[in-house]
Design a binder for these strands. Structure first.
Lengths: 348, 348
DNA sequence: TTGAAAGCGGTACCAT
DNA sequence: ATGGTACCGCTTTCAA
């Protein structure tokens, strides 16, 4: 059933039906009601494809996120959920595109075939060819994350440098002198993932400022890797008393590694980092962390994109978020670290 | 730029360009190459909307999942990821639709406006109006989950009843006599969520078979609720020595509640259930559980849907999965439960 | 206030 | 092997 059918049954022309439905031209109350009746009776809904073809807008936004394999993290889930929800509020649908790079088939389809009006990108790299490409063709998009040179572009990001610095200062204030940093997987760091790179920067800088003895580690996005990472940390420097992490997926494994090494959190060992709030609360003791406001970021990204779509030519806008550290239960004053085989340290 | 532009530059007709690109009609090697050159030079890609309008197919599948609010679980994330990935392999894009019911705007758009060729539904209820609707209008879809009467429909599901029964038998075999069941939130149970209902059935049945003393609980989808739930359990019957859960999101909280009550897992208290593998491994000790093969289920759902789309009229197919219980570290023989204030039980 | 008709950008049938 | 053209279903301009 199509608009012609409605028109015929209502005894009017197709254009009148179109206008009656869109309200873009006045229609007499009489005919409008007659049309509405037919529409209701037949449950007519205009075809999205035809409409998209005619007016050049799909009412769909693309959400570009990295292909799996790299396991997804809870944070990504929160982003996806909030983007979809926020988009629905503006009557946009969301098309998912698993694309790591510019040249991915899925990414090319999204743009080249004009399946979406605009795009939101996740998992930004400091140099990101997807964003370069989008900027080059002036395609409306908003990044969740910030490149090395975000000037003049649309994004909503987190100040990872600052957040990790705060974590380090928090630990230093508690008296910790030997601290480890547990980053995302090496391959992501190498690829220039923003959070991994900026987080590492912040860690290094703050550690130097406070004169801490530190080591940095890359860690796979899963529990087993986290557990192994803690073993390495304690092997490399058994006197380590705290760690900072960005690696949400490894968190459970980090805790397990510590338990296995008989380091009680937070008495013998403190843990903190940057993690989405819901996930920080699933571990015991609950993680003191800068909570990634994933839901808010997703919502803001959609708002920016909608604004950009509604007002082509609008000046680029962005949001840089710096959520506070939520003090929970995983950090405490540094005790005397246990020597090998001497059992847990005694807290003064 | 459109197909007419290509045709003009290549000095052929529009139809020839179309055929050259689709291969649906032989084209002389000469002209084909000339066309390809122009296409490459201009980076031409046909418009998805126009193509969809012309041939009635969108090359998009809809993924219908419940709106947030109900927090998302890790399992849902795994479903989404695997569906997107599998769909990409068949050159389908995935459109996300957050719809709890039939009448949701988003759901209506998906169908009524013909945005997608088919749909995959998550979070099935035993009586599910979305599926009824889809069946009524004969819309190609596959459910991840199984209604009360799944005969003659397409789905890939998990035998929750059987899985939970096995969990109970596993505990009974270990000597546990007083066991609790931690279900999904009450509101979902009431709504008839398949896993919640069938899981409960299995629990009740197996418990009766083994003559166990049991209580069943509903629990919110978050850590705090899990923690509170354990408190209730131990308050209601301090002699409880084990629990079975379906509630992945509460798992961390369940562990915390037990730790707080000084029940050491698995020495004093055993925990098991039905949970996606990755998440079972994030807790310490790692959860002995029937691992939900979320990735496989998503992939199978896409395969079924693609089959259904390619062969309209094909006989309904389904997959009922019964993954084995992975023995990890959270269950052990029942000890003598501790009386109040007597400290942990002594294991013989 | 309403209708007729020209697109939007492809596909595929009917000719040649 | 190729070209011409009707058509997919809706929007919007132009006319009445």
């Amino acid at each position: 059933m199509n608009i012609g059918e409605i028109a015929r049954r209502a005894g009017v022309s197709r254009s009148t039906v179109s206008y009656a439905l869109s309200g873009k031209r006045p229609v007499s109350e009489d005919t409008r009601r007659r049309i509405q009746e037919v529409v209701d009776e037949l449950g007519y809904q205009p075809s999205a494809s035809a409409r998209a073809l005619a007016n050049g807008r799909t009412s769909t936004i693309g959400l570009v996120f990295p292909p799996a394999g790299n396991h997804y993290t809870g944070m990504q889930l929160d982003f996806i959920g909030s983007v979809v929800e926020a988009a629905a509020a503006y009557d946009y649908d969301v098309l998912l595109s698993p694309s790591g790079v510019d040249s991915d088939r899925s990414f090319q389809r999204l743009l080249g075939e004009r399946r979406v009006d605009g795009a939101i990108l996740m998992e930004i790299r400091l140099r990101d060819d997807r964003l370069d490409h989008l900027a080059a063709v002036d395609f409306p998009s908003v990044a969740i994350g910030r490149t090395a040179h975000p000037e003049g572009s649309w994004w909503v990001g987190l100040d990872h440098t600052e957040l990790v610095q705060r974590c380090v200062h928090h630990l230093a204030d508690l008296g910790h002198r030997r601290v480890a940093f547990v980053n995302r997987p090496q391959q992501l760091l190498r690829a220039g993932y923003e959070s991994a790179q900026r987080g590492l920067d912040g860690f290094t800088k703050a550690a130097a400022e406070r004169g801490l003895t530190v080591r940095t580690y890359c860690c796979g996005d899963d529990a087993a890797s986290g557990q192994a990472c803690v073993q390495r940390i304690l092997h490399d420097d058994p006197a380590t008393t705290a760690l900072v992490t960005l690696n949400e997926a490894a968190l459970g494994g980090l805790y397990r590694g510590l338990a296995q090494a008989d380091r009680l959190v937070p008495r013998d060992f403190s843990v903190t980092g940057v993690v989405a709030g819901r996930w920080a609360e699933t571990v015991t003791p609950q993680l003191t962390a800068a909570d990634v406001p994933a839901a808010e970021m997703g919502r803001l990204a959609v708002e920016l994109l909608v604004e950009r779509l509604d007002q082509p030519g609008a000046r680029p806008r962005h949001h840089l978020l710096v959520p506070p550290i939520s003090l929970r239960a995983s950090t405490g004053p540094a005790g005397v670290p246990p020597g090998p085989d001497l059992g847990p340290a005694t807290t003064p």
